[in-house]
Design a protein around this nucleic acid. Structure first.
Length: 233
DNA sequence: GACGATTTTCCTGTTT
DNA sequence: GAAACAGGAAAATCGT
């Protein structure tokens, strides 16, 4: 049964739907047909109580809409026709397919989805208080904390960042523009570029948050950065 | 409103 | 030549 939900199923949806169709054009108003929950107030209990694989088509779309609302993402960048699929199909999407479908919001949404899938938590779930959490990832106000928290979620960060030497706090920016886009989404600034982001990172050399590493796209946490050490988080 | 910290924007020059 | 780095300068933003 699971085999029936395949890559081709996902692609077939893209062929029968206009990629630019809006949410309501494609799905109508969910309130009309489907019982709804108050995702704004009961978001966590709903989205984490049911594994994404068991979401209905409308759950998938409600989740997308909810994320757009919650994180102030631009829903116009999402091709909702590509998401006329159920949860199992959603989970079977490759990262590439997901990013194609979700546009510039893709990295961010993929990160959230992987969190729910693998940990059963969403960004709005309180988890262990002693280590940086996905909640912190959303709420940390500083760039270096944003970078740190992305690094602490290696399975979900979409390969944007990776450790070169975890013990030394050395990491590499793998997808520079994707990182900039993600930071831009976070700051609601669609003009963010890696050039600007890297300038902000270089200011951290002065304050000891980062230390210079003479290699391209490689940075190192400095003595004044905290929370990145494996045994101290 | 002033102030400081942080980030953004723009820039020129250098390095890889 | 392109991408990334380095860092000055000024402006913007935000919290206090």
């Amino acid at each position: 049964m699971l085999d029936s939900v395949t890559h081709s199923t996902f692609l077939s949806n893209t062929m029968v739907c206009d990629p630019l169709m809006s949410w309501t054009e494609l799905f109508g108003t969910t309130e009309d047909v489907y019982p709804t929950c108050d995702h704004q107030t009961d978001s966590d209990s709903f989205w984490t109580s049911i594994h994404p694989e068991y979401w209905s088509k409308h759950n998938v779309c409600e989740w997308l809409q909810f994320c757009c609302d919650q994180y102030k993402l631009d829903a116009n960048c999402i091709s909702f026709s590509h998401f006329n699929i159920n949860g199992l199909q959603l989970c079977n999407m490759t990262q590439e397919e997901f990013l194609d479908a979700a546009g510039i919001c893709g990295e961010y949404l993929y990160f959230i989805l992987q969190n729910i899938r693998t940990h059963g938590i969403s960004f709005f779930t309180d988890v262990e208080e002693t280590k940086p959490t996905n909640k912190d990832y959303l709420q940390s106000s500083h760039l270096w904390e944003f970078v740190r928290d992305l690094l602490l979620s290696p399975e979900e960060n979409g390969g944007i960042l990776e450790w070169e030497d975890r013990g030394q706090g050395i990491f590499r920016v793998v997808k520079s523009e994707a990182l900039a886009k993600m930071w831009g989404q976070r700051k609601k600034n669609d003009r963010m570029t890696y050039e600007k982001l890297s300038r902000a990172l270089r200011y951290y050399y002065k304050t000891g948050i980062l230390e210079r590493v003479d290699r391209r796209l490689v940075y190192k946490f400095g003595k004044n950065a905290h929370g990145w050490q494996e045994n101290k988080i």
